[in-house]
Structures are given as structure tokens and as C-alpha cells.
Design a protein around this nucleic acid. Structure first.
Lengths: 177, 177
DNA sequence: ACCTTGAGTTCCCTCAGGGAACCCCAAAAG
DNA sequence: CTTTTGGGGTTCCCTGAGGGAACTCAAGGT
């Protein structure tokens, strides 16, 4: 779909959208997360066209979010989340939380989440990694970061290489615009 | 774009994708959040076609995520986030966090977030709303919820009506599939 | 030799996204 | 009163992505 190139924008939201910005990709990740790992299962469960599913899987593998593992001597494979992909599932949980709050209606949420640590049905909550207090859209100021000026050279590319935490420091421009 | 109807699926992720599942909507919300509120500004900043921008704005207003406010006696308006929309921006922060970690490369993150509460440059972290411990994709079990069987009747629709917290209780089917 | 199954390809059709030009309205300028 | 300006969209056409169904291919099983 992407007629516009989101990956080149100096915005981590746009770049993330380049990876999972069309609606099938999150659903594929959800399914893989929930244990639906094979081509025909995914196709049947999602109701996606086989052609598009092939493309999406290739794209997700390309971006290091999924990996393909053989499970037989025959040419059979399953798709698994990489570490990079597993962190995207965190995003899906937040997405599900919003849908549960605002779209579930009287019927209530379709899926419940039980937290291993406490054993309770719960939901995710956003907190500041620094002070631990709640951190929402209205609780932050946006500042230009070091990568503000343009797209990154030396992109990590396909490999699920470890994330890099750059030291914060002021850059030039703010949001594009 | 949506040829497939995601809103009818018994999945809060799919339903959320029905609202912001194509790549422009999150970027529009990001811009409105950052203070870009007028049609021509949005169009110029995003590089989106005017036609598609019109459609997206109508869709977002329709779903109660944005609202349109006049700012002049002339027919001029600005777009603002509703409470429902502001909570979607939380999702954008998580998205940005993932992009910062995995896609920013050597250049570092394009935007930094300063938390009002502690004044520090920080990032969001996902925690369990119940026990406060970290809560990630691998830390939860999925269980069928009360709305598991089908799409909800009596959907909140357009209005940014308050969220409903239904009492948890077991339902019938799990994920669709 | 034939059937089955997983995992894709190929082909065609329709509709959504991109681009650019055009339009409407209200205020301000002349 | 007429013209200009500028925000906020419409309209039209073209391309290309998504949907659907049929076809292919390789490896077993019987």
C-alpha cells in the first residue's frame, strides 16, 4: 500500500508505521503471539488474501520482526516473533487496551489479560521509565532529539540487532513542520 | 483503504485498527497533538493528498477522536483531540518508543519526551494496572472475555462518551480462529 | 501411480491513494 | 461595488495495492 515513504521521515512514529502501518500486520503479529503460526492457519483465521499474507510476512521478516522456522523435513515453516517483534506486541496490548475502553460497548472486552506476576486480570498502564509516575500524552513536552534533522544513515536494517540507546542531547529541528 | 471490515471482529486490536489502521491517521493525531491543527498546515506538514486528508479527518471526527472548532467568524476551523483521541496519543508514545529503540540508528531519536512530573527526558514503560510490576507481551495469558462471541451491539459510536468498564467474566470463544 | 497437505504464485478486477486543478465563502482592500 | 486573498475543501484522472480464486510445487502417505 505505502505510496508515501514513511521510513524516511524524521519521526519514530512514521518509521514504525513503515513496519506495521497497514492494518494486517498488527493482526498477523497478534495471531503469531497467540499461537497461530502457520500460513494456512493465518490465512483462514484472518480472512486475508493469500497474496497479501505472503507479502506481509515477507515484509515483517524483512524488518526483523518475525522469523521463519522449519518444523519438518518437508518444506514446512512456522513464523515466530523475534525480540524486536515481541516488543511490538507490547504496542498491541496498548492498542487492545484502548479498544477495550472505548469500543467494546456493553458486551465488554473480547479478550482478558492475566498478568503472570500477580495472577490477576489486568491491563497495561503507561508509566515514566524514570520516575515511575503515570505518563500520558498530556504529561510530556516534546523536544528535538539528536536524530531530528533527517532520516538515519546506517539503519539497523533487517537484522534484529540490539537496540541502541543514544545519549540524549539537543538537535536542530523539531517535528517535521 | 479498508476493504476488509475490521470493526466487526471480536478483537479490540482489530477494532482499534478500524479507527487508526491506515498509516495517515496516527500521523494526523501526532500533528494535532504537537500543535498542527489546521487543514493546510496538516497537508503541508504531512505531504498527504488533500482528498485523503479530508477523508481521514472526517473519519477521525466520526469516531470521536478529533473535534472541529471554529477559530474565527469566517468559516475557519481547527482540529482538536477529544479525551478519546488523547488516549490514542498514549499509543503513539509507545509506538514512538519502539521506533526510537529499534529504528533510530546512530542518529538517535528524532524527538525527546520530557516528563512534567519529574522534569526528566524519559520514555513510557508498560506496567500492570493491578500490581504495578512490568507487564509485557510474554508476561500475560490471554483468556476469553465477556465480549468474545461477536461484535458489540450498542456501540458507543461517534460520541466521545465515557468508557465503560465491564466487570470481567468468562465468555465463550477465544481469539477469532 | 494417485491423493493429500502446506505453502506459496499467478491472474484479473476493483477500489483506495496521489496529484493537480478547480471551487466556494467571507473578510479586507481599493 | 468589485477585486483580491486565503482557508478549506471537491472533482477528476491515473496508478497501484488489496481481494478472490485458480494454479503450482514438493514431499509424504497408501
Amino acid at each position: 500500500m505505502q505510496r508515501t515513504n514513511f521510513a524516511e521521515m524524521a519521526c519514530s512514529i512514521a518509521r514504525t508505521l513503515d513496519v506495521i502501518g497497514e492494518p494486517w500486520s498488527p493482526l498477523i503479529l497478534r495471531d503469531v503471539w497467540a499461537g497461530v503460526r502457520r500460513f494456512d492457519q493465518l490465512q483462514a483465521d484472518l480472512g486475508i488474501s493469500r497474496k497479501v499474507l505472503t507479502e506481509r510476512l515477507a515484509h515483517l521478516i524483512d524488518h526483523g520482526v518475525l522469523e521463519r522456522r522449519p518444523y519438518d523435513r518437508r518444506p514446512r515453516h512456522e513464523y515466530h516473533l523475534t525480540a524486536k517483534g515481541a516488543e511490538l506486541v507490547d504496542l498491541l496490548m496498548v492498542m487492545a487496551g484502548w479498544g477495550d475502553r472505548w469500543l467494546a460497548g456493553e458486551a465488554g472486552p473480547p479478550v482478558l489479560y492475566r498478568h503472570h506476576a500477580c495472577g490477576e486480570i489486568s491491563a497495561v498502564e503507561l508509566r515514566c521509565a524514570h520516575c515511575g509516575a503515570p505518563m500520558h500524552a498530556g504529561d510530556v513536552d516534546l523536544l528535538p532529539g539528536p536524530g531530528a534533522t533527517g532520516p538515519d544513515k546506517s539503519a539497523p536494517g533487517a537484522g534484529a540487532a540490539g537496540p541502541d540507546e543514544s545519549a540524549p542531547g539537543p538537535g536542530a529541528a523539531g517535528l517535521p513542520g
